[in-house]
Design a protein around this nucleic acid. Structure first.
Lengths: 240, 240
DNA sequence: TAATTTCTTGACTATTTGGTCAGGAAACAC
DNA sequence: GTGTTTCCTGACCAAATAGTCAAGAAATTA
């Protein structure tokens, strides 16, 4: 993750670092953190609603309940705030694939991953939307991140999946495209929420409907990924 | 489809309708049509790149190669142009499901649908992105369309799929969520193109890579949808 | 050709918006 | 307390932008 959420004038660090380094964070620091957190949450909401260009700093400030000038004190430019929001989101993105290891039981691990992603879509739709919007417009801000961290992550997890396939534990599907599909489907329930609601004929997708969606998605992918029943393991791994 | 692409002052219609109604469209009409088409294409590109808020009419006019005031002659407001672009796109959306009928061979029909959607993603990425952007922001402009036409279309096709399932010709998956998944995955190759390229480690997704993606997506869904081999048809339909 | 309608466009305007700034209020250190 | 740093904010500004307008060019009709 790049340099996260520490924008705004940071002159205080110099003095502070000497007297109260490891001690409890001085109040001053806490004011800053608290305000930045409030601004980040507000910004996430507004950016999710309107995109980068559509969002105005005045909107964000209003949503956060602070004067615009105060926002600019912490985040001198709109883009700084946007970056901070994205960095925040990207941090969440990373941990999710942790369960996908060669040691894990493939189907269970994939199911858990899907459920985690679906939960995420429900819990943080704004984060997902900001992310989607950024990528939709060519990832001008996080392109470098995608080409580095994300690409490496996928490469690493693709290796795991290839091992699973070699051992006949899951069906022979292209691992990278499998990830694209998993992301696309799980995030569609956050990003395209309005479409889902429209087709389901409701104003807002209910909790139950989201649970149904989760089961449907799990069923779909598990069917796709389940090996063809014939011959199990072939070598290596933990044999029957 | 709502009232499509006929904005701008339309005073000419009154007079015209009398003299040359069914005859070849008078030149005047052709100038209008040609210019509107040019503007629509340009607008689609720019809206896809920047979203509604991020796009400026000056950008669109420049892309179309006409003065800004001329654009406003045909589309008095930015929103009119946006609506026209969306209406244009929605028209394309409709026909695609034509092959999904009870009579069709389910797996072949679904495969054809997927391939068509993937081709669409490649051929009209801008259309897809404008659409995605609109939905991402809550479908303020086409929400009504989604709740009416799209919902009805899905309901109708879901019926077809339920018949297929009842006859044991495809696996018992929720039809509506199957559609969400199909759309999500196929459109991800247009909308999230930049992410796909980043993960694949290229600047631009090549033709070959898109073909590979198509095969991967087809394989994934056909595996998911294929019935469990046990007992085929049960009643009705065209028996073996 | 003359009359009429459609089209074109440079120049202009009102509004919105990102960002600045100076002066003062808190918070903190000593 | 006194001094110093951090924080707050109303007022302001320059740039960008959607939309207007009037005057004229081009096309079309009679």
């Amino acid at each position: 993750m790049p340099e996260t959420a520490c924008l705004g004038q940071s002159k205080q660090v110099g003095k502070k670092a000497q007297s109260a380094t490891t001690a409890a964070p001085p109040r001053m620091q806490r004011v800053r953190d608290r305000n930045q957190a409030v601004l980040l949450r507000a910004a996430e909401r507004v950016f999710a609603r309107a995109g980068f260009a559509g969002a105005t700093v005045a909107d964000i400030a209003r949503e956060a309940g602070v004067p615009k000038a105060n926002l600019h004190y912490y985040y001198p430019e709109k883009r700084d705030l946007y970056r901070a929001v994205l960095d925040n989101i990207l941090a969440l993105w990373l941990g999710e694939t942790d369960g996908l290891t060669t040691e894990a039981e493939p189907l269970a691990a994939l199911e858990a991953y899907i459920r985690a992603k679906m939960r995420f879509s429900r819990a943080y739709p704004d984060a997902s939307r900001v992310f989607a919007n950024e990528i939709l417009h060519g990832a001008p801000e996080i392109g470098a991140y995608l080409r580095r961290e994300l690409r490496q992550l996928v490469a690493s997890k693709a290796t795991v999946i290839k091992v699973w396939i070699k051992d006949g534990r899951i069906a022979p599907l292209d691992p990278v495209h499998l990830f694209f599909a998993l992301w696309a489907v799980t995030q569609t329930y956050a990003d395209f929420d309005s479409q889902v609601a429209a087709v389901l004929g409701v104003r807002k997708v209910s909790v139950q409907q989201h649970l149904d969606a989760t089961e449907a998605v799990v069923a779909l992918f598990l069917r796709a990924v389940r090996p063809d029943a014939v011959r199990r393991q072939r070598s290596s791994g933990k044999p029957a």
